[in-house]
Simulated assay, not measured.
Amino acid sequence: MAGKKVLIVYAHQEPRSFSGALKTAAERELSRQGCVVTVSDLYAMDFEPRATRQDIVGDLSTPEYFSYGVEVYEAYKKGSLSSDILAEQRKVREADLVIFQFPLYWVSVPAILKGWMDRVLCQGFAFDFPDFYDSGFLKNKRALLSLTTGGTADMYAKSGAIGDIRYFLWPIQHGVLHFCGFEVLAPQISFAPATASEEERKVMAAAWAQRLKTIWKEEPVDCSPEGCFGQ
């Protein structure tokens, strides 16, 4: 879809990794479609994952007791957040689709990506009260998790050794993305690329690129508790 804007938030230390290959495949295919693709390469940027006093420029609203959430909310309204947060918020604001590309760490996102969510998706920018979930401020934008795992697909099945992968993705898809208003697309899961053959990795990368050809026609998934656990 020519003119669409895509942000890829990429969290892997090694450019030659399979996560890196998937990021590159997405850049290539979406650019071929005429999309404007921006990549936030968090490790290359040395992105700060910690939510600290340094995120607020200037005086605090309540200096006698530091409450990060309160101070960031006030700073957002005054335009006094740190420049790195503002830069990432600008990318999100402009994007029609945000793709999160990462390896699954302890059945969650890497710390640097969690820090991006903590700092960038703040109250006032991504949500407010009562403006969250379907009325979150990032409504009409789409989001998609593209992740790799260490374990094989059968390990993440309902009866597998680790358990149903939907259980692990639900807090991110529903508790973070849907909470902020995103329309969440089905995750792209590449199982165990480290132990796969070169041919199997090529098939996984090709499947991702093929899916992206029609990504704009996809319908969001129901990532609510009923949608995820009612099946």
Rank of each mutant, 00 (worst) to 15 (best):
T24S: 14
E199T: 13
V221T: 10
M45N: 06
I8E: 05
D222H: 04
D128S: 15
E218I: 02
Y43F: 15
L86A: 14
I189F: 05
L144N: 07
A21L: 14
P225C: 01
S146A: 13
S197D: 04
D55Y: 06
A26C: 12
D154M: 11
E88D: 10
E14H: 14
F137R: 13
A11W: 03
A186Y: 08
Y156L: 02
W106I: 13
A111I: 11
E183W: 09
Y167P: 06
G160N: 10
F182W: 09
E219T: 09
C122Q: 11
T24K: 15
A75F: 03
L147W: 04
M1T: 12
V203F: 02
G136V: 03
V184A: 07
A87Q: 14
A205I: 10
Y167M: 15
V57H: 02
Q89F: 09
F132I: 00
A26W: 03
A196P: 00
P193F: 01
W170Q: 15
I85K: 02
A143Q: 06
C223P: 04
V37G: 05
V221C: 09
L185Y: 04
G34T: 10
A161T: 15
E71Q: 06
T62N: 08
V120K: 02
D96R: 05
P110E: 07
S159K: 15
K141Y: 06
I162R: 13
W208C: 00
R90C: 08
T214M: 07
Q123K: 15
K213G: 07
Y65L: 10
D96I: 02
Q188H: 10
E183V: 05
V98C: 07
E88M: 12
A207M: 00
I99S: 05
S61C: 11
F125M: 06
Y10H: 11
Y76A: 04
F132A: 06
Y76M: 06
A192R: 02
M45S: 08
A21H: 13
A26R: 01
E226N: 00
G136D: 04
R16S: 15
S190H: 13
W106V: 14
E198N: 08
M204R: 04
M1F: 09
D59R: 13
S82K: 10
V221D: 00
L212S: 02
W208N: 00
A194E: 13
E218H: 01
D222L: 01
F125W: 07
P193A: 03
Y76V: 04
V221N: 00
E64L: 04
A51F: 12
V72Q: 12
L86C: 12
D134M: 03
E29A: 15
C180P: 07
E71G: 03
L144F: 01
F47H: 12
S17Q: 11
M204C: 00
V120A: 06
S61L: 12
Q33T: 09
R90I: 04
